[in-house]
Design a protein around this nucleic acid. Structure first.
Lengths: 217, 217
DNA sequence: TCCGGCATCAACCGATCGGTGGATGGCGTC
DNA sequence: GACGCCATCCACCGATCGGTTGATGCCGGA
């Protein structure tokens, strides 16, 4: 009674890398490389044919004639069309701009090609077990990204200006803002004019959208 | 010539958990527990006093009198005031809503209390080495969060209504929108009125902010 | 054919907005 | 004291907005 091995397809445009990964995986008794793909389109076709447990996907592969499939697009296509197959992304650099694209496309793991062999094998086993795997460097980038999303620049509107702008953003007229803040409409308009000056805009709507973009609201 | 051990403070409001973690860490020759804290304020004070390599921080601790410090706030305070000290967050549940707060506060790692002991020890060593550590379940939550951010709900404004609304959001008057879309101002106003109806608002500013909230723009 | 959704357009009118003069007073810093 | 920033306020006026009437025409589906 033998345990079913993890069936893997390796997708990378560099033959040496592809063979190297395949050779590494072949050393593991519980992993079986069922096919190799040199580009995204082949990866999708082979995945649909073999229905593997995992596709090891290089993020950066050339886009060939016909349907355009870079790593992220191929990932999305596989996840969409081959139920039960997970995609483990291999990237060369942690600075790879396509990482977020692959996240959005539904990949289950992200490892660096430069990772120790044990880490890649462990990653394969974890992903089959339903886990999400992030190489530490990629986790750091992800965290930094979320941190930068959360902490945008902090400018220079006064507390009162922000009070007024918040109420305007919620759809209040100047008269309504005035009533809510117990001030006159003239004061509201003055605050708004100051806001317009500071943000370099000339209408309330743009003031609000820009303030949102800048994280002021 | 002995290697300098990793100096750790353990912060958790439950004595049993605290002792358990401290005992686990004491088993490791390269880790030295220098203090224990029962709440965020104590964690901050002890970190400032001992300047450890790492604070193991429970995310959910009661907020006591005086400065209010839950796990995330204490994390921010430590990172701000104790250079060289990193914070490794321990959470009970991967569904913990405070995880993102801790990320934003600058924590370097996130592990589940239920993780295997080796994983916690490895996490401590990795974080001291400058790496970011994510427990798989937490990585999955982070990834899911980024994915949901990327794929917001998609409602029911027509293409033309969205065209108009986008230009309005950018600060264009109705006349300017009309010129840019090669239509009359009356048409712009009609589209806007339809947008107001569909979104249940009565002014352009609120239409824009709501559309942004709903992911329409 | 009918119907609904969408895109386009007009005229009119009251409400609201944005801009442009002004103004006072409080506070903190030099 | 002078200065800058902030908060508050006024009157006036042209520009713009939102709402309310209408209208036509195109397209796709039943």
């Amino acid at each position: 009674m033998t345990v079913q091995p993890i069936r893997v397809i390796v997708a990378d445009d560099h033959p040496i890398v592809r063979s190297g990964i395949a050779a590494l995986l072949s050393l593991a008794d519980d992993i079986d490389v069922v096919a190799e793909a040199a580009n995204g389109a082949d990866a999708v076709a082979l995945a649909q044919e073999h229905r593997p447990d995992i596709v090891l996907m290089d993020l950066r592969m050339p886009v060939l004639d016909g349907p355009e499939f870079d790593g992220a697009a191929a990932t999305a296509r596989i996840i969409e069309t081959v139920p039960g197959t997970r995609v483990l992304i291999l990237t060369t650099y942690e600075t790879d701009d396509h990482i977020l694209g692959a996240i959005e496309a539904g990949a289950s793991g992200y490892l660096l090609k430069a990772a120790p062999q044990e880490e890649i094998l462990a990653g394969v086993r974890s992903v089959v077990g339903g886990q999400t795997v992030l190489a530490p460097a990629i986790a750091a980038k992800l965290v930094a990204r979320m941190r930068s999303d959360a902490l945008p620049a902090r400018p220079k509107l006064s507390a009162r200006e922000l009070d007024v702008l918040r109420l305007v953003a919620a759809g209040n007229s100047n008269a309504s803002v005035a009533a809510r803040l117990f001030i006159s409409e003239a004061t509201v308009k003055t605050h708004l004019l100051h806001v317009f000056e500071k943000l370099g805009v000339s209408d309330r709507t743009r003031a609000v959208t820009l303030a949102l973009e800048l994280g002021l609201l």
